[in-house]
């Protein structure tokens, strides 16, 4: 009888131990889990390349910075306390524009990020950006919940560098052909992603969905960043925001 009682006690202890281990593990996972809000800013063109053009880009150096800040403020208001907010900025573009503006734009952006209390990450190459998206954080614990891209764009390509290193072209860009390099595991299935650049709704959004299994909003037409701290608006008559390329434009 005593021996049977001991047996039951040991079984109960083992059960309790296993249950505790499972609950502790699940609890740790729950505590560790936090979504990431990621905002990406491309760089500005140089005035020396743009000054004599009819369609001049980036008179103001901070088009992609101010709009990103506005978005970050929105995110900070709605995010959970455990969520991570990261701001990735194309450094080379601002270094070169700093020389032209005779002011330290790098320090200025760092100050703005510090003021918002968000994590600032600089990048120089597209592979650095993709690497961060894929494995910058443990994506099983920190999937990307929201992504916003502020940069020059056409319907097939986001250009982090535009008319900055070479007049009128891009040397650092993310083309739709490279989107399969982005892991769909990096995103929550219900991730809210937006490309705020021009024409993204005419091709890019479909390719993004194919590559990442998440929907992305993009513009039919051009987007205008010249309203200061306001979010970009569509400047093309008849333009609109879409997450599927309309059938007539495929």
């Amino acid at each position: 009888m005593v021996s049977q009682c001991n047996s039951y006690t040991t079984k109960f202890q083992a059960f309790a131990l296993s249950t505790t281990l499972i609950l502790v593990t699940l609890g740790q996972k729950q505590l560790a889990h936090a979504d990431e809000f990621l905002v990406i800013s491309g760089g500005p063109a140089l005035n020396r390349f743009e000054a004599d053009k009819q369609t001049r880009h980036d008179r103001f150096w901070g088009n992609f910075i101010q709009t990103a800040e506005t978005r970050l403020i929105e995110i900070l208001k709605k995010k959970k306390s455990t969520d991570v907010v990261t701001w990735m900025v194309f450094r080379t573009g601002y270094e070169r524009r700093s020389q032209e503006e005779s002011r330290n734009l790098i320090a200025e952006i760092e100050q703005r990020a510090a003021k918002l209390n968000v994590t600032l990450k600089w990048f120089r190459k597209t592979r650095e950006l993709i690497s961060y998206i894929n494995q910058g954080l443990d994506r099983s614990q920190h999937p990307i919940k929201q992504l916003d891209i502020f940069a020059h764009s056409n319907k097939a390509c986001v250009m982090f560098d535009y008319s900055n290193r070479v007049d009128g072209v891009s040397t650092v860009f993310l083309h739709t052909r490279d989107l399969p390099l982005i892991s769909s595991n990096a995103f929550r299935k219900d991730a809210y992603t937006t490309n705020w650049g021009c024409h993204a709704g005419e091709y890019w959004v479909d390719r993004w969905r194919q590559a990442t299994d998440t929907y992305m909003w993009g513009a039919i037409g051009k987007t205008n960043y010249s309203y200061g701290a306001m979010m970009p608006i569509i400047s093309t008559p008849g333009g609109r925001w879409v997450k599927f390329v309309p059938s007539g434009r495929r």
Partner: peptide
């Protein structure tokens, strides 16, 4: 219990080990 614990702990490592990506030449 121990196996379950290791499996649950191990998921994070497995899922995070995404292969190193580089952008191919355009």
């Amino acid at each position: 219990a121990l196996t379950l614990t290791f499996v649950l702990c191990g998921c994070a490592v497995t899922n995070s080990s995404v292969s190193q990506s580089t952008v191919s030449p355009g």
